[in-house]
Protein backbone atom coordinates (compact mmCIF):
# COMPACT_ATOMS: atom_id res chain seq x y z
CA UNK A 1 0.00 0.00 0.00
CA UNK A 2 1.16 3.52 -0.67
CA UNK A 3 0.15 4.90 2.71
CA UNK A 4 2.86 3.15 4.65
CA UNK A 5 5.15 4.87 7.08
CA UNK A 6 3.67 8.15 8.34
CA UNK A 7 0.35 6.65 9.35
CA UNK A 8 1.32 3.32 10.78
CA UNK A 9 2.17 4.51 14.29
CA UNK A 10 -1.37 5.83 14.62
CA UNK A 11 -2.87 2.48 13.65
CA UNK A 12 -3.25 1.01 17.14
CA UNK A 13 -4.66 4.24 18.50
CA UNK A 14 -7.08 4.46 15.63
CA UNK A 15 -8.24 0.90 16.13
CA UNK A 16 -8.86 1.73 19.79
CA UNK A 17 -10.73 4.87 18.73
CA UNK A 18 -12.94 2.74 16.53
CA UNK A 19 -13.82 0.45 19.43
CA UNK A 20 -14.11 3.14 22.11
CA UNK A 21 -17.77 4.05 21.48
CA UNK A 22 -18.91 0.48 21.93
CA UNK A 23 -16.56 0.00 24.86
CA UNK A 24 -18.06 3.02 26.60
CA UNK A 25 -21.59 1.86 25.94
CA UNK A 26 -20.97 -1.67 27.11
CA UNK A 27 -21.14 -1.24 30.92
CA UNK A 28 -24.66 0.15 30.62
CA UNK A 29 -25.62 -2.58 28.20
CA UNK A 30 -24.30 -5.28 30.52
CA UNK A 31 -26.11 -3.76 33.51
CA UNK A 32 -29.38 -3.45 31.61
CA UNK A 33 -29.15 -6.90 30.06
CA UNK A 34 -28.48 -8.54 33.41
CA UNK A 35 -30.58 -6.46 35.79
CA UNK A 36 -33.52 -5.89 33.48
CA UNK A 37 -33.81 -8.64 30.91
CA UNK A 38 -32.03 -11.32 32.92
CA UNK A 39 -34.22 -10.56 35.90
CA UNK A 40 -37.37 -10.57 33.78
CA UNK A 41 -36.41 -14.00 32.50
CA UNK A 42 -35.68 -15.25 36.02
CA UNK A 43 -38.94 -13.94 37.46
CA UNK A 44 -40.85 -15.39 34.54
CA UNK A 45 -39.28 -18.78 35.18
CA UNK A 46 -40.04 -18.58 38.90
CA UNK A 47 -43.71 -18.01 38.06
CA UNK A 48 -43.74 -21.52 36.56
CA UNK A 49 -41.79 -23.07 39.44
CA UNK A 50 -42.59 -24.45 42.83
CA UNK A 51 -40.91 -21.57 44.69
CA UNK A 52 -42.19 -20.56 48.08
CA UNK A 53 -39.98 -18.88 50.63
CA UNK A 54 -36.86 -19.88 48.69
CA UNK A 55 -36.48 -20.33 44.95
CA UNK A 56 -37.17 -23.89 43.90
CA UNK A 57 -36.54 -24.54 40.25
CA UNK A 58 -38.92 -27.48 39.95
CA UNK A 59 -41.17 -26.84 36.94
CA UNK A 60 -44.84 -26.92 37.94
CA UNK A 61 -46.36 -25.44 34.82
CA UNK A 62 -49.30 -23.14 35.37
CA UNK A 63 -49.80 -24.14 38.98
CA UNK A 64 -48.82 -20.74 40.44
CA UNK A 65 -50.83 -18.95 37.76
CA UNK A 66 -53.99 -20.87 38.58
CA UNK A 67 -53.44 -20.20 42.28
CA UNK A 68 -53.07 -16.52 41.45
CA UNK A 69 -56.18 -16.49 39.34
CA UNK A 70 -58.31 -18.21 41.98
CA UNK A 71 -57.02 -15.95 44.73
CA UNK A 72 -59.72 -13.78 46.28
CA UNK A 73 -57.31 -10.93 47.01
CA UNK A 74 -56.00 -10.90 43.44
CA UNK A 75 -59.57 -10.50 42.25
CA UNK A 76 -59.98 -7.49 44.49
CA UNK A 77 -56.63 -6.12 43.34
CA UNK A 78 -57.60 -6.41 39.68
CA UNK A 79 -60.97 -4.82 40.33
CA UNK A 80 -59.34 -1.98 42.25
CA UNK A 81 -56.68 -1.23 39.67
CA UNK A 82 -59.38 -1.13 37.01
CA UNK A 83 -61.53 1.32 39.00
CA UNK A 84 -58.57 3.31 40.19
CA UNK A 85 -56.89 3.44 36.80
CA UNK A 86 -60.01 4.49 34.91
CA UNK A 87 -61.03 7.20 37.36
CA UNK A 88 -57.47 8.43 37.73
CA UNK A 89 -56.80 8.70 33.99
CA UNK A 90 -60.15 10.27 33.14
CA UNK A 91 -60.11 12.76 36.02
CA UNK A 92 -56.53 13.82 35.40
CA UNK A 93 -57.15 14.36 31.71
CA UNK A 94 -60.42 16.24 32.16
CA UNK A 95 -59.09 18.47 34.94
CA UNK A 96 -55.72 18.90 33.29
CA UNK A 97 -57.29 19.93 29.99
CA UNK A 98 -59.67 22.38 31.67
CA UNK A 99 -56.86 23.97 33.66
CA UNK A 100 -54.65 24.18 30.58
CA UNK A 101 -57.37 25.86 28.51
CA UNK A 102 -58.17 28.30 31.33
CA UNK A 103 -54.49 29.10 31.77
CA UNK A 104 -54.07 29.62 28.05
CA UNK A 105 -56.28 32.76 28.09
CA UNK A 106 -53.37 35.15 28.60
CA UNK A 107 -53.63 34.93 32.37
CA UNK A 108 -51.57 37.49 34.22
CA UNK A 109 -50.17 35.29 37.01
CA UNK A 110 -49.76 32.24 34.78
CA UNK A 111 -46.28 31.41 36.05
CA UNK A 112 -47.32 31.42 39.70
CA UNK A 113 -50.48 29.41 39.07
CA UNK A 114 -48.61 26.86 37.01
CA UNK A 115 -46.09 26.46 39.78
CA UNK A 116 -48.89 25.91 42.29
CA UNK A 117 -50.70 23.33 40.15
CA UNK A 118 -47.55 21.39 39.43
CA UNK A 119 -45.77 21.29 42.80
CA UNK A 120 -47.43 18.06 44.06
CA UNK A 121 -45.54 16.22 41.32
CA UNK A 122 -42.30 16.99 43.14
CA UNK A 123 -43.50 15.32 46.33
CA UNK A 124 -42.97 11.71 47.28
CA UNK A 125 -46.12 9.58 47.18
CA UNK A 126 -45.40 8.79 50.81
CA UNK A 127 -45.58 12.48 51.69
CA UNK A 128 -48.73 12.87 49.61
CA UNK A 129 -50.26 9.84 51.28
CA UNK A 130 -49.37 11.09 54.74
CA UNK A 131 -50.83 14.49 54.04
CA UNK A 132 -54.08 13.22 52.57
CA UNK A 133 -54.48 10.59 55.23
CA UNK A 134 -54.44 13.40 57.73
CA UNK A 135 -56.54 15.73 55.61
CA UNK A 136 -59.28 13.14 55.17
CA UNK A 137 -59.04 11.80 58.71
CA UNK A 138 -62.67 11.28 59.77
CA UNK A 139 -62.17 12.34 63.38
CA UNK A 140 -59.99 15.39 62.98
CA UNK A 141 -59.72 16.29 59.31
CA UNK A 142 -62.09 17.63 56.70
CA UNK A 143 -65.18 16.16 58.38
CA UNK A 144 -64.52 17.87 61.69
CA UNK A 145 -63.62 21.09 59.92
CA UNK A 146 -66.97 21.10 58.16
CA UNK A 147 -68.74 20.41 61.44
CA UNK A 148 -66.88 23.30 63.06
CA UNK A 149 -67.94 25.52 60.20
CA UNK A 150 -71.56 24.66 61.00
CA UNK A 151 -72.25 21.90 58.44
CA UNK A 152 -73.22 19.32 61.07
CA UNK A 153 -74.56 16.69 58.73
CA UNK A 154 -71.36 16.58 56.64
CA UNK A 155 -69.93 13.11 56.69
CA UNK A 156 -66.77 11.93 55.04
CA UNK A 157 -65.41 8.66 56.30
CA UNK A 158 -64.33 7.07 53.01
CA UNK A 159 -60.84 6.42 54.33
CA UNK A 160 -62.14 3.76 56.73
CA UNK A 161 -65.03 2.60 54.57
CA UNK A 162 -64.10 -0.58 52.67
CA UNK A 163 -66.29 0.34 49.74
CA UNK A 164 -65.06 3.90 49.42
CA UNK A 165 -61.40 3.82 50.51
CA UNK A 166 -60.09 3.31 46.98
CA UNK A 167 -61.70 6.62 45.96
CA UNK A 168 -59.69 8.52 48.54
CA UNK A 169 -56.59 7.16 46.85
CA UNK A 170 -57.97 8.38 43.52
CA UNK A 171 -58.45 11.87 44.96
CA UNK A 172 -54.90 12.07 46.25
CA UNK A 173 -53.44 10.62 43.06
CA UNK A 174 -55.41 13.04 40.89
CA UNK A 175 -54.29 15.92 43.07
CA UNK A 176 -50.70 14.87 42.52
CA UNK A 177 -50.71 14.33 38.76
CA UNK A 178 -53.20 16.85 37.34
CA UNK A 179 -50.63 19.63 37.19
CA UNK A 180 -48.38 17.48 35.06
CA UNK A 181 -51.17 16.62 32.64
CA UNK A 182 -52.03 20.31 32.54
CA UNK A 183 -48.45 21.14 31.62
CA UNK A 184 -48.53 18.59 28.80
CA UNK A 185 -51.74 20.06 27.41
CA UNK A 186 -50.45 23.59 27.81
CA UNK A 187 -47.38 22.71 25.77
CA UNK A 188 -49.67 21.18 23.16
CA UNK A 189 -51.87 24.27 23.05
CA UNK A 190 -48.87 26.53 22.63
CA UNK A 191 -47.74 24.44 19.69
CA UNK A 192 -50.91 25.00 17.69
CA UNK A 193 -50.64 27.26 14.68
CA UNK A 194 -52.10 30.63 15.63
CA UNK A 195 -53.05 31.55 12.08
CA UNK A 196 -55.50 28.68 11.91
CA UNK A 197 -57.29 30.03 14.97
CA UNK A 198 -57.34 33.51 13.47
CA UNK A 199 -58.85 32.06 10.32
CA UNK A 200 -61.57 30.37 12.38
CA UNK A 201 -62.26 33.63 14.23
CA UNK A 202 -62.63 35.45 10.94
CA UNK A 203 -65.02 32.72 9.85
CA UNK A 204 -67.07 33.73 12.87
CA UNK A 205 -66.71 30.62 15.03
CA UNK A 206 -67.38 31.19 18.75
CA UNK A 207 -64.55 30.42 21.18
CA UNK A 208 -65.99 27.17 22.52
CA UNK A 209 -66.51 25.89 19.00
CA UNK A 210 -62.93 26.74 18.05
CA UNK A 211 -61.78 24.64 21.00
CA UNK A 212 -64.16 21.76 20.36
CA UNK A 213 -63.74 21.54 16.61
CA UNK A 214 -60.26 22.80 15.88
CA UNK A 215 -57.97 22.88 18.89
CA UNK A 216 -58.84 19.81 20.94
CA UNK A 217 -58.82 17.43 17.95
CA UNK A 218 -55.29 18.62 17.26
CA UNK A 219 -54.18 17.66 20.75
CA UNK A 220 -54.61 13.97 19.96
CA UNK A 221 -50.92 13.15 20.41
CA UNK A 222 -51.02 14.79 23.86
CA UNK A 223 -54.06 12.72 24.82
CA UNK A 224 -52.21 9.60 23.74
CA UNK A 225 -49.08 10.50 25.71
CA UNK A 226 -51.13 11.42 28.77
CA UNK A 227 -53.07 8.16 28.70
CA UNK A 228 -49.90 6.09 28.33
CA UNK A 229 -48.03 7.93 31.08
CA UNK A 230 -51.00 7.89 33.49
CA UNK A 231 -51.82 4.24 32.84
CA UNK A 232 -48.22 3.39 33.45
CA UNK A 233 -48.19 5.38 36.71
CA UNK A 234 -51.46 3.75 37.78
CA UNK A 235 -50.26 0.20 37.28
CA UNK A 236 -47.06 0.97 39.16
CA UNK A 237 -48.93 2.69 42.01
CA UNK A 238 -47.73 1.23 45.26
CA UNK A 239 -46.32 3.96 47.48
CA UNK A 240 -49.48 6.03 47.67
CA UNK A 241 -51.67 3.10 48.63
CA UNK A 242 -49.23 1.88 51.26
CA UNK A 243 -48.99 5.36 52.75
CA UNK A 244 -52.70 6.16 52.69
CA UNK A 245 -54.47 2.93 53.46
CA UNK A 246 -51.83 0.23 53.67
CA UNK A 247 -54.04 -1.72 51.29
CA UNK A 248 -56.83 -1.69 53.85
CA UNK A 249 -59.24 -1.57 55.45
CA UNK A 250 -58.71 -5.32 55.23
CA UNK A 251 -57.86 -5.92 51.60
CA UNK A 252 -60.19 -3.25 50.34
CA UNK A 253 -57.57 -1.15 48.57
CA UNK A 254 -55.23 -3.91 47.46
CA UNK A 255 -53.83 -3.41 43.96
CA UNK A 256 -51.52 -5.72 41.98
CA UNK A 257 -48.44 -3.83 43.19
CA UNK A 258 -49.29 -4.26 46.89
CA UNK A 259 -50.44 -7.81 46.26
CA UNK A 260 -47.12 -8.71 44.71
CA UNK A 261 -45.16 -7.07 47.51
CA UNK A 262 -47.05 -8.83 50.29
CA UNK A 263 -46.84 -12.25 48.63
CA UNK A 264 -43.15 -11.77 47.94
CA UNK A 265 -41.96 -10.42 51.26
CA UNK A 266 -44.61 -11.13 53.94
CA UNK A 267 -46.29 -14.32 52.85
CA UNK A 268 -43.21 -15.94 51.30
CA UNK A 269 -45.08 -17.11 48.21
CA UNK A 270 -42.47 -16.34 45.57
CA UNK A 271 -44.23 -18.29 42.84
CA UNK A 272 -47.50 -16.39 43.06
CA UNK A 273 -45.66 -13.10 43.55
CA UNK A 274 -43.64 -13.76 40.41
CA UNK A 275 -46.75 -14.63 38.42
CA UNK A 276 -48.45 -11.41 39.47
CA UNK A 277 -45.34 -9.41 38.55
CA UNK A 278 -45.17 -11.02 35.12
CA UNK A 279 -48.82 -10.17 34.61
CA UNK A 280 -48.14 -6.51 35.46
CA UNK A 281 -45.20 -6.44 33.08
CA UNK A 282 -47.29 -7.95 30.30
CA UNK A 283 -49.98 -5.29 30.68
CA UNK A 284 -47.48 -2.45 30.68
CA UNK A 285 -45.53 -3.92 27.78
CA UNK A 286 -48.70 -4.19 25.72
CA UNK A 287 -49.22 -0.49 26.38
CA UNK A 288 -45.68 0.87 26.18
CA UNK A 289 -44.04 -1.07 23.37
CA UNK A 290 -46.38 0.14 20.59
CA UNK A 291 -46.13 3.64 22.02
CA UNK A 292 -42.32 3.63 22.15
CA UNK A 293 -42.20 2.10 18.71
CA UNK A 294 -44.30 4.85 17.21
CA UNK A 295 -42.41 7.56 19.11
CA UNK A 296 -38.97 6.32 18.11
CA UNK A 297 -39.73 5.59 14.50
CA UNK A 298 -38.22 8.51 12.67
CA UNK A 299 -39.32 9.57 9.23
CA UNK A 300 -36.82 8.17 6.75
CA UNK A 301 -34.67 10.83 5.25
Amino acid sequence: MSNASPDRDGGARERLQRWLPKLVLSPSCVLVLFFVYGFIAWTSYISFSDSGMMPDYTWVGLHQWSRLWTSWTWGIALHNIWVFGLLYIVSCIVLGLILAILLDQRIRAEGVLRTIYLYPMALSFIVTGTAWQWFLNPGLGLEKTMHDLGWQSFSFNWLIDSNMAIYTVVIAAVWQATGFVMAMFLAGLRGIDGEMIKAAQIDGAPAWKIYARIIIPQLRPVFLSAVVVLAHLAIKSFDLIVAMTGGGPGNATAVPATFMYSYAFSRNEMGIAAASAVFMLAVIAALIIPYLYSELREPRS
Binding site: L25, Y37, A273
Partner: peptide, 30 residues
Protein backbone atom coordinates in the same frame (compact mmCIF):
# COMPACT_ATOMS: atom_id res chain seq x y z
CA UNK B 1 -21.16 7.26 16.98
CA UNK B 2 -24.05 5.32 15.56
CA UNK B 3 -23.44 1.72 14.72
CA UNK B 4 -25.55 -1.01 13.21
CA UNK B 5 -28.33 -1.76 15.68
CA UNK B 6 -28.01 1.45 17.69
CA UNK B 7 -31.77 1.85 17.67
CA UNK B 8 -32.32 -1.61 19.10
CA UNK B 9 -29.83 -0.92 21.88
CA UNK B 10 -31.56 2.36 22.69
CA UNK B 11 -34.97 0.70 22.62
CA UNK B 12 -33.79 -1.98 25.05
CA UNK B 13 -32.31 0.60 27.41
CA UNK B 14 -35.35 2.83 27.17
CA UNK B 15 -37.82 0.04 27.90
CA UNK B 16 -36.16 -0.39 31.29
CA UNK B 17 -37.67 2.98 32.31
CA UNK B 18 -41.14 1.61 31.96
CA UNK B 19 -41.06 -1.85 33.49
CA UNK B 20 -43.08 -2.29 36.67
CA UNK B 21 -40.31 -2.78 39.20
CA UNK B 22 -42.20 -5.63 40.82
CA UNK B 23 -40.74 -7.78 38.08
CA UNK B 24 -37.20 -7.33 39.44
CA UNK B 25 -37.85 -7.26 43.19
CA UNK B 26 -37.35 -10.97 43.81
CA UNK B 27 -34.14 -11.54 41.84
CA UNK B 28 -32.69 -8.20 42.98
CA UNK B 29 -33.22 -9.13 46.62
CA UNK B 30 -31.28 -12.34 46.01
Amino acid sequence: WKFRGHKVVFGLILFSCFIPFQIILLPMAR
